[in-house]
């Protein structure tokens, strides 16, 4: 069961399972007794079957287009974004688009190669749950989420950039 870090740095356990994309010709292997995150396009393909279920969420890979879920995002209890390598920054754009453009309000979870020093960026881009890579020291997450007390830009966490705060 993964430990999940919240935006405030607190740690909780949960049992969401990430279901990998099935090989060509195979079907999704969704566990019967656990909530599951499935590839977003497959959720859409099985829309009639999946929509409204509180135990089914989706995940995007970093090269996926979140646009495919426009208009449906809030039907999902959890959306996860995979960072295949911590240095792959596409997930930050996906996070902001889901939140700021498509108005997603439920849990946005970072999965994959999630390290301590990237948490601050994920937080600002709308992620509110982080599954840290297992070998990293989860007790340092809170500190790493809070090195900065403010930022220059508007992002998901604030729509008031510093130049507007200075003016007021």
């Amino acid at each position: 069961m993964p430990n999940v870090i919240s935006q405030d740095g607190s740690i909780r356990e949960d049992n969401w399972v990430v279901v990998p994309r099935p090989a060509e010709g195979e079907s999704l292997d969704i566990p019967a007794d656990q909530p599951a995150l499935i590839p977003a396009d497959l959720w859409l393909a099985g829309y009639e079957h999946f929509t409204g279920r509180q135990d089914i969420g989706v995940w995007f890979d970093s090269h996926d287009e979140p646009e495919i879920l426009e208009g449906h995002v809030n039907e999902l209890p959890v959306i996860a974004v995979n960072f295949p390598k911590f240095s792959d920054g596409r997930g930050y754009s996906i996070g902001r688009l889901l939140r700021e453009r498509f108005g997603y309000v439920n849990e946005l979870r970072a999965i994959g190669d999630v390290l301590l020093d990237q948490l601050q960026f994920m937080k600002r881009c709308g992620f509110d749950a982080y599954v840290l890579r297992a070998d990293k020291d989860i007790t340092k997450a809170q500190k790493c989420l809070n090195f900065f007390s403010q930022g220059y830009q508007a992002a998901t966490d604030t729509d008031v950039p510093l130049f507007r705060r200075r003016a007021s």
Partner: peptide, 16 residues
């Protein structure tokens, strides 16, 4: 300077 401030620690563009 405006660009400097906007680009400094930009959360979306730290891993281009």
């Amino acid at each position: 300077e405006i660009i400097r401030q906007w680009s400094t620690f930009h959360p979306e563009f730290a891993f281009l």
